[in-house]
């Protein structure tokens, strides 16, 4: 399996806060990486750096062996589905898909034809002529998934892609991810929903306070931490065991 992504000594500061501290890892084609960590651990920052949205960082990022800083052509090979999708809300889905298709050089008609098929999988094909601002959260996210994959990218960056999506569509989506892996696509999956990450990922990367503290397959990680579920491993590594106490505190406040 060929290496498709490599991060070397990646560090990033926001003001005085060090969000990423000397991150090093590489990803091979056909891998599904579960990229997990607490809120503010630096997951989204890592993805934004790889995508070129943040360019004042230390270290290097390589995509298909090419250093990406200041470049843009490599983005043809990557797709991105963010947690909250910025879209031009006053366009119809048809227009937006056409627009994105043009940006990738697919042509708007081709893009729309392809997207229509993808939309039908998620049951939103009838909404194609509706303006995006009228869409529910789930519909928006489905559209974001479609436009993020429209150009048949080799690496997919998914940052909490399932927000607001109904259970049936989540099942379909999980199948899609497996299917894409079988086609040799690489998936970089960042999420808090550990059950989904556990089921889908070949390899787990756990980010804590800007450091990669765990890197391995699910079996390797289990063995290392002597825990059975990803959730308990996550709790151990991040040192969090107060969930019951905090829940009780909330209920007391709620009842008072």
């Amino acid at each position: 399996m060929a290496e498709v992504l490599r991060l070397e000594h990646l560090s990033k500061k926001f003001g005085n806060k060090e969000v990423l501290k000397d991150i090093n890892f590489s990803v091979n084609s056909g891998e599904i990486i579960g990229y997990i960590g607490s809120n503010g651990a630096g997951k989204s920052t890592t993805i934004k750096i790889i995508l070129g949205l943040i360019d004042d960082y230390d270290g290097d990022v390589y995509v298909f062996g090419e250093k990406v800083k200041g470049k843009h052509e490599y983005k043809r090979k990557i797709g991105y589905v963010p947690e909250i999708s910025d879209m031009y809300d006053n366009l119809t889905a048809y227009e937006y898909i056409g627009f994105i298709g043009n940006l990738y050089g697919l042509g708007s008609l081709n893009a729309v034809a392809k997207a229509k098929e993808m939309m039908s999988v998620f049951g939103i094909e009838d909404a194609i002529d509706g303006r995006i601002h009228t869409f529910s959260k789930g519909m928006r996210q489905k559209l974001s998934i479609i436009t993020g994959m429209l150009h048949n990218p080799d690496i997919l960056f998914l940052d909490e892609p399932l927000g607001g999506i109904d259970a049936n569509s989540v099942m379909v989506f999980k199948e899609i991810i497996q299917g894409l892996k079988n086609q040799g696509k690489t998936i970089f999956y960042s999420s808090h929903i550990l059950e989904v990450v556990e089921k889908l990922s070949d390899r787990i990367l756990l980010l804590n306070e800007g450091n990669i503290v765990l890197d391995g397959t699910m079996d390797e990680v289990r063995e290392k931490q002597s825990d059975s579920t990803l959730e308990s491993i996550f709790n151990d590594v991040t040192g969090f065991h107060d969930h019951e106490m905090l829940a009780n505190k909330f209920i007391s406040a709620f009842m008072s």
Partner: peptide, 14 residues
């Protein structure tokens, strides 16, 4: 800032 997230994730010269 919306523009940046929509456009600069695509293969476009800034």
């Amino acid at each position: 800032t919306k523009d940046k997230n929509i456009l600069l994730t695509k293969p476009l010269d800034s």
